[in-house]
């Protein structure tokens, strides 16, 4: 087991564990914190997969900006374990069962893929570098890039419409 494999397992366990933490934690603040841990673990995976730029973006955008926003909102609303609404046990159980079923079914469905032995390992390759990504983005993907500005515009307008006090 080489170092990358060890790292893979550590990061995987960390990601899954903290994701479970998000779901299970009673206190919303803990959930946010767990989520941040998940993001970090995923960023670690990115680095393992030679996606350095994405790893950074993930931390900056997700863990940094988005999660802070979440935290901010939670703090603003003063949410905590006491006021946290809880579903009935049965519904929760049903939810878990359903999630588990879905997992099992999807895994059962695709575990036998022909490409399953194909590896995705830390090795050479520099596509994850900002330069290469940038080149591709502004050559081949310039159209979606520009179009996503419309998305942002609309989100911006929307946030104003919804958020602004009348």
């Amino acid at each position: 087991m080489n170092i990358s494999q060890i790292l893979f397992w550590i990061l995987t366990v960390l990601a899954l564990g903290s994701a479970l933490g998000v779901v299970l934690s009673k206190n919303p603040v803990y959930s946010v914190l767990c989520l941040i841990v998940t993001f970090f673990a995923i960023s670690g995976h990115y680095i393992l997969l030679n996606a350095q730029f994405l790893a950074i973006v993930n931390i900056i955008v997700y863990a940094g900006a988005i999660m802070v926003l979440f935290l901010f909102v939670i703090m603003l609303m003063n949410l905590n374990a006491e006021v946290e609404p809880q579903k009935s046990k049965i519904l929760k159980f049903a939810g878990f069962i359903a999630g588990l079923c879905l997992f099992l079914v999807i895994v059962a469905a695709i575990k036998n893929a022909e490409a399953k032995t194909q590896a995705a390992q830390l090795a050479g390759g520099d596509i994850g570098l900002i330069k290469n990504l940038g080149t591709a983005l502004f050559n081949d993907y310039v159209l979606p890039f520009e179009i996503s500005s419309v998305l942002f515009l609309s989100a911006m307008v929307g946030a104003v419409v919804i958020g602004k006090k009348e």
Binding site: L143, I147, S148, V150, L151, S154, A155, G158
Partner: peptide, 28 residues
């Protein structure tokens, strides 16, 4: 705009973005 995108996409990426461009304003 989103409508125009989803009626002429060739890439799943544009389908995705197009649908999001439709959806997000609709949420609002």
């Amino acid at each position: 705009c989103g409508v125009a995108i989803v009626t002429s996409f060739n890439s799943l990426l544009l389908l995705f973005i197009g649908i999001e461009i439709i959806s997000i304003p609709l949420y609002i």
